[in-house]
């Protein structure tokens, strides 16, 4: 599966590399666009020293961890949200006659390596935050774990959003509220959100396990909403459950697929 993915992605990259100038420009611009959210955080902290009890560097740490995972998804799986285009134009029929999973084909279709600019930007911010906060090594092991779980959770969301488009072919934009909305939501400490919102994104849509719960562990902070300590370590469980649900939804979506046209 990974092999097929890499091979397909590589073919698209080679095709794009035929235009080296626009290739370079797009990487730089991806970096710039992604920088907007950091700029917003910096502007906010030029006016205050803490936001809902969190310092600038703590917020940048949460932003960095969530965004590395999100940017990786943006590069590797976000093409799933073009599914309604494939359904409308009939290219989805073509994917179904190929002996490879439709998920991989949709995810790699028009794969853009230039989106790596965004990943680099997020890694840079994360690197800065970890250094500035002087976090202890004994807790830093959690960082790769949370990025991995975040990646799985966001990928599952993209898959769910893609499956939703089999039903909502006319309004694919709805799904970006879930995918890009989740990316936006996890950029800030959950302490700024209302209690009901936080409950919702902990127990219904498990976004709290991307960076909030494990992030509190790394930062050595108690949860202002008072959840018990063991919740900090539930990321892998949440990721697994959501991934299974997403897989089922994708299958259902394909079963519901009604090829149109002749």
């Amino acid at each position: 599966m990974v092999r097929t993915y890499v091979l397909l992605a590589w073919t698209w990259t080679r095709a794009a590399a035929a235009y080296p100038v626009s290739f370079a420009i797009m990487t730089v611009l991806g970096f710039l666009v992604a920088g907007l959210d950091v700029a917003a955080i910096l502007v906010i902290f030029s006016n205050t020293t803490t936001l809902a009890g969190f310092t600038r560097d703590q917020v940048l740490f949460l932003y960095g961890t969530s965004n590395v995972a999100f940017a990786l998804c943006d590069m590797l799986v976000s093409n799933l949200d073009r599914i309604s285009l494939h359904v409308k134009s009939g290219t989805f029929d073509t994917m179904l006659i190929r002996p490879v999973s439709t998920w991989i084909q949709t995810a790699t279709d028009r794969f853009l390596i230039t989106r790596i600019g965004r990943v680099l930007q997020a890694l840079l911010v994360l690197g800065y935050a970890v250094t500035a906060l002087d976090l202890p090594w004994s807790r830093l092991w959690m960082v790769p774990v949370m990025i991995g779980c975040g990646f799985v959770i966001f990928s599952a969301l993209w898959t769910l959003a893609g499956a939703l488009q089999f039903v909502l072919t006319d309004a694919p934009e709805v799904s970006s509220a879930f995918t890009y909305g989740s990316g936006q939501l996890t950029q800030y400490p959950f302490a700024i959100y209302g209690r009901e919102v936080v409950r919702g994104v902990t127990y219904v849509l498990p976004l709290a396990f991307v960076n909030w719960q494990p992030g509190l562990y790394v930062l050595g902070l108690p949860d202002p909403f008072g959840t018990p300590e063991f919740m900090r370590f539930l990321g892998p469980v949440a990721a697994l459950v959501l991934a299974l649900l997403a897989g089922l939804a994708w299958r259902q979506g394909i079963r519901r697929y009604r090829s149109t046209g002749s």
Binding site: I44, E173, V174, S176, A177, G181, Q184, Y188, I192, V197
Partner: peptide, 20 residues
């Protein structure tokens, strides 16, 4: 659909501004 997405993002932005 656009209105829905704009509304969701509105809620997220509002919480940031309220905290500030």
């Amino acid at each position: 659909a656009g209105a829905f997405t704009n509304s969701v993002f509105g809620i997220l932005r509002a919480y940031v501004l309220i905290a500030l």
